[in-house]
């Protein structure tokens, strides 16, 4: 589904990603871990198409398409979803209106007519239940006045509504208490299918108690320096990132 080859990216002339290689197949959950400043968030930003980042080398192929040639909105329409580390507030725009616009834009891209109101409402109800989202939140302005946990839950709710092929969760666990973590992770698990894939970017192992990855990658200094099964995450938790640094610098 996703194939990243020798990806180099920089911001303001400073190289952050220094040759990333990553293969993600449909049905898989990949975890990307790493210490602060290793390039985790840069990777998610480049995948989503943030313009501040310049890709200097390498390629990203997503379902046969060159992702780097697509605008951010077209990437989203092709099925790439980013759950933001810091979700943005849009005052005065209700979640419902926001999602309806997004869904219909994605449908228009695929040559489909706008979704029928009753189908939309049915989906809304169903997905709200999935992430245990209060009905009131759906009608409130996008993220405005939401608590940290509500914002993160709203990201997963949006993900559920948009039904992406590839979801990237950027530090979705940060700032969540244990209950919110359980709900968010539960949402992700319920949405898992053989047709979609998830990349979980996280600093801590904690989230991976709830979302069990098929593969764990360690990102350090702009490169994936270690790849292993889910046990790798536990090892990291136990030993800290220092042992990776030592290995790499040795």
């Amino acid at each position: 589904m996703l194939s990243i080859k020798n990806l180099h990216a920089s911001i303001d002339g400073k190289e952050i990603l220094k040759g990333i290689n990553l293969e993600v197949k449909a049905g898989e959950i990949h975890a990307i871990m790493g210490p602060n400043g290793s390039g985790k968030s840069t990777l998610s930003a480049v995948l989503a198409g943030r313009e501040e980042y310049e890709v200097t080398e390498g390629e990203i192929i997503f379902n046969g398409k060159n992702l780097l040639e697509l605008s951010p909105e077209d990437r989203a329409r092709e099925g790439v979803f980013l759950a933001f580390q810091y979700p943005i507030e849009i005052p005065g725009v209700s979640n419902v209106n926001f999602l309806k616009t997004a869904i219909n834009e994605i449908r228009a891209y695929k040559g489909l007519a706008p979704m029928e109101a009753k189908d939309f409402l049915a989906r809304l109800k169903e997905k709200q239940k999935l992430v245990e989202l209060d009905g009131k939140l759906a009608n409130r302005s996008v993220n405005e006045g939401f608590s940290g946990g509500e914002k993160k839950r709203n990201e997963i709710f949006q993900m559920a509504m948009l039904e992406p092929k590839l979801a990237i969760l950027d530090e979705t666990d940060s700032g969540l208490d244990i209950d919110a973590l359980r709900i968010v992770a539960g949402g992700v698990n319920k949405l898992k299918s053989k047709d979609n894939a998830t990349i979980v970017i996280t600093h801590y192992q904690r989230l991976l108690d709830y979302i069990v990855p098929d593969v764990v990658h360690v990102l350090y200094n702009g490169k994936i320096v270690k790849t292993g099964p889910k046990e790798l995450a536990l090892e990291l938790e136990e030993k800290g990132y220092d042992f990776i640094k030592e290995e790499v610098n040795a």
Binding site: G49, E73, F81, I88, T101, E105, L162
Partner: peptide, 15 residues
């Protein structure tokens, strides 16, 4: 940031 957030959900600049 607001614009990018919208785009990431499939909504283009003008919309």
């Amino acid at each position: 940031d607001q614009l990018f957030y919208c785009k990431q959900r499939g909504i283009d600049n003008e919309k």
